[in-house]
Design a protein around this nucleic acid. Structure first.
Lengths: 223, 223
DNA sequence: AGGGATCCATGATTGGATCCCA
DNA sequence: TGGGATCCAATCATGGATCCCT
């Protein structure tokens, strides 16, 4: 385990140290093996980057770089730098939303300060994928406004007991989608009559169009 | 043949007279039959609307409403009002571009004043498609800037003899695509050495993202 | 050929399902 | 269960091909 970065400048310096490297090279540095089956490799890239950069959180509900208040997000990109997948933000609270506002929400906290690390993805085989240039980002006023609007609309529907009516098509930039081992997983929700019932766990995700804008506005990529 | 409108107000009044009507109803008014095979019906809607509104141009290179300087464009929309197809603007000049600038271009002239008439499209059968609310539009400064930029980039490539390298992917809002009976049709172009050669006729088209913005900014539709 | 456009196969997108680790 | 995410079948978007009329 590598020690954690002392400052944002330290963190960015470490990012420059992994930029351009393949995942095989990075795994070798920390003595990890690279999974061979793609389906079994979900999450591997993010966890490898955390290890390489000295992230602290593990599966705790605190920022990856706790001292710095920085969340790290690896982001799979195409050959031209476009995000290929949505970005998971956090699980969605389906019960106990009393007093839960945007200002104190986990989504806002997680996105307050993010280290975006682009990594090549399909069709390049996992070991040969290269890490790109990292970006430290906080949402602009406009970006936070649209995030907040989506979050509030989603949470309003959940408060009304309508969580089951929410699909991945809802939300301009912030989606709610299943976040579970499979479609039979169950957690507790609140129905229209205020009664507890079993439902599929959900998570908040950022659409690729949103993360694409973040990357492009900061790197001036083509397209 | 109906007489031509005397003013923009007259034209818009006639549009209100066809809004909400089906193509079967309008065809009946002017004594036309409605084609049954969709592949054989390309252009039918536009020509029917011209007839109903008293357009004058036929296949001449002048505005549909010549006296008013107004071009009519029917635009096929989905159930939610989104354009389903790109919009043809004009054929592309592949030879004799001396002195051809944006200011005197056919694209600029055609788009200077446009009557957009949304009409329902797939999956509704042709006779049952309904005409929507028409919109008289001129490009904003921003819209003209992006149109001009696309047009100039396309024409520069054509001047360099590179017309064959242009694909439908080029241009932010204004595309160049084939405009011909089939892929074997031929017209004259100029190659990299300034020599005439046979090539596929092309046309300028507006992307659905562009026309969608026009419709939405004026009707405040959902989505 | 120019004006009126849409067709539709195929590539791009994506939302529901799924997978690993602690 | 929460954090790290990607997989991939089904849907959407679109660009090259095509069709009618004068």
């Amino acid at each position: 385990m590598i020690n954690s970065p002392k400052s944002e400048a330290d963190l960015l310096e470490r990012c420059r140290g992994i930029a351009g490297r393949t995942l095989a090279e990075l795994a070798s540095r920390v003595g990890w093996r690279v999974p061979t089956e793609p389906r079994r490799a979900k999450g591997f890239t993010g966890q490898l980057l955390e290890e390489c950069l000295g992230a602290t959180a593990g599966s705790k509900s605190v920022p990856d770089f706790e001292r710095l208040g920085v969340e790290m997000k690896s982001i799979p990109v195409s050959a031209t730098g476009s995000p290929l997948e949505s970005t998971y933000v956090s699980t969605t609270t389906l019960v106990d939303h009393l007093g839960l506002t945007w200002d104190v929400s986990r989504v806002r906290k997680k996105l307050a300060r993010v280290l975006w690390v682009p990594v090549q993805s399909r069709p390049i085989p996992l070991p040969q994928r290269r890490v790109g240039s990292a970006l430290l980002w906080s949402p602009s006023a406009d970006e936070e406004a649209v995030l907040r609007n989506d979050w509030e609309e989603h949470m309003e529907r959940i408060r009304l007991g309508m969580v089951e009516t929410i699909t991945g098509r809802d939300g301009d930039v912030l989606q709610i989608r299943p976040k579970a081992a499979d479609s039979k997983a169950q957690t507790w929700g609140i129905d229209e009559n205020g009664h507890r019932f079993r439902t599929l766990p959900r998570g908040f995700y950022l659409r690729p169009t949103f993360t694409s804008k973040i990357l492009r506005q900061n790197f001036r990529l083509p397209g």
